[in-house]
Simulated assay, not measured.
Amino acid sequence: MRTIHDIDTGTDMVWPEFLPGWVWLAGAGPGDPGLVTLHALSALKQADVVVYDALVDSRILGWVRTGVPTEYAGKRGGKPSPKQRDISLRLIELAREGKRVLRLKGGDPFVFGRGGEEALSLAEAGVPFRIIPGVTAGVGGLAYAGIPVTHRDVNQAVTFLTGHDQNGLAPSRIDWDAIAKGSPVIVMYMAVKHLDHIARRLMAAGRSPDEPVAVVCDASLPTQRVLETTLGEAADDVETEGITPPALICVGGVVPLRRVLDWQAGAPAPQDVFRALGRGSRDAG
């Protein structure tokens, strides 16, 4: 551990020391640099090399010390990307050179971020590592769209799933019937390409074609776009609107709360919207 004096608060802050030969796997959040954790910021300030993903905002890389190299190792579905094995081997190689290696990943490294695979490779190679969790897009990104993933009047469960398997195909090992029946709210990562297939599976398992859906593109960034639609129309609407990854898809009754909770809109919702959501004066006191 190392102690740094914070001149703003007048207190001593204790940070973990980034030792040579270590790899830190850190989450950079969904995009907005303000969502980077203090531990991730500390890592950026100490690292000797940064190996970063495609979805890490360039402004975050601006916090790296002058002269420290940054290496791109982003994987994007349907586009030429480094092989996962090569990325893991590169982390091991850099660590064995005695460098303090920061592996910076969008969102949280352990939520559909392949952080678990990289950590296993490091452990097998005998390379010491630390995990720094990040704000996952399925929570933080939706919050920037004014959508809470849970609300006690709507759901007591939420399911996070990926929209493709390791080969880029529609996921085949997901029990769609169980999810459709058991999860009031579904949050999908990387699902734009196979949205039509997924929506059909959910509706075949009993979900209503009229169920609310939100598609959040470039979540938490100045370029953020939000499409509100329904499960039956979602695939067609995404194509019509020209929405491309990265995008999050949320299915369920929390989506309409955006009419009130879209805090970036800059104005309070009119009272008739509250009434339409089943909220009334009973909630004011």
Rank of each mutant, 00 (worst) to 15 (best):
R65W: 05
L61K: 10
H39Q: 15
G77D: 14
L38V: 09
L25T: 14
P82N: 01
R90N: 15
L104K: 04
D48K: 02
A28M: 09
D48Q: 07
K105Y: 12
L35W: 02
P20R: 12
A26V: 08
L38I: 10
T37E: 05
K83C: 08
V68M: 11
L91V: 03
L104S: 08
G74I: 02
D86P: 02
A40N: 13
E97H: 08
T70H: 13
V56C: 14
A43K: 05
G62S: 07
V101Q: 12
V49K: 02
K83P: 04
L94I: 10
W24F: 05
S81G: 06
E97M: 09
Y72Q: 10
L25I: 15
R90K: 15
L55D: 15
G74W: 03
K75E: 09
L91S: 05
Y72S: 10
W15I: 07
L104Y: 02
Y52H: 15
A54M: 13
L104I: 01
G78F: 03
P33F: 03
A28S: 08
L44S: 04
G21P: 10
A26S: 13
W15H: 12
A26G: 12
R85S: 01
R59N: 11
P80H: 07
E17K: 15
F18E: 00
M13G: 03
Q46E: 15
E17L: 12
W22G: 08
P33I: 05
S88W: 10
R103M: 00
D12C: 04
F18T: 03
V50S: 07
I92M: 08
L19R: 14
